[in-house]
């Protein structure tokens, strides 16, 4: 056992866990931050993605100790940070994923949304190709990625005050955005 001194979602925390634990295990099983998911055991799926000093990393491969001294942001951190900036409700990325139907089973999406959040922080107007590149470390098994990409593009469009592109099905269904 050892004590890890971690900065998670803005809080300085001390937490004791076995020395060989990964950051993912400490987040999930000691800090109760269960939003970071485990899908593949070893860095193949991206579900455990967290932001480390703003960059997406895989917490299942990151030894917990080596996260000391860095700012960790998990999916649970996005809404409070959004509120702290005066925002309402969930972070715009989270909200856009919900509005676009991108959350089917939702299991891969914390990682996906953090990859998207990191992209938009660095590049507020990514092209579709840049979105694909930024999400190329996150597997999703439900959506076919279409509504995920739509969600990121919705964030981009709304930030720019532009009308987002409507998907093909919306014309058929006479659907209006709720």
């Amino acid at each position: 056992m050892r004590v890890f001194r971690l900065n998670v979602n803005g809080d300085d925390l001390e937490v004791a866990a076995p020395a060989h634990w990964t950051l993912l295990e400490v987040l999930r099983y000691e800090l109760g931050l269960i939003g970071s998911k485990q899908g593949c055991d070893k860095g193949d799926c991206g579900a455990c993605t967290v932001l480390l000093d703003g960059s997406p990393v895989l917490s299942c491969l990151r030894l917990a100790a080596t996260a000391e001294g860095h700012a960790v942001v998990t999916i649970e951190g996005l809404m409070p940070m959004h509120k702290a900036r005066g925002g309402d409700g969930a972070d715009v990325v989270q909200d856009a994923f919900d509005r676009c139907g991108a959350l089917q089973c939702g299991f891969c999406q914390p990682g996906m949304m953090l990859s998207a959040r990191a992209l938009l922080n660095e590049n507020p107007k990514p092209t579709r190709g840049e979105i694909h590149d930024a999400l190329a470390g996150n597997l999703c098994r439900c959506t076919g990625y279409t509504q995920i990409v739509q969600a990121v593009e919705l964030c981009v469009a709304e930030a720019a005050g532009v009308e987002p592109a409507q998907p093909a099905w919306s014309a058929d269904a006479n659907g209006k955005k709720v």
């Binding site: 960059s55 990393v57 895989l58 990151r62 470390g137 996150n138």
Partner: peptide, 9 residues
Amino acid sequence: IAGPQLRTM
């Protein structure tokens, strides 16, 4: 090499 997260690490 690999994917974005793995290149960051």
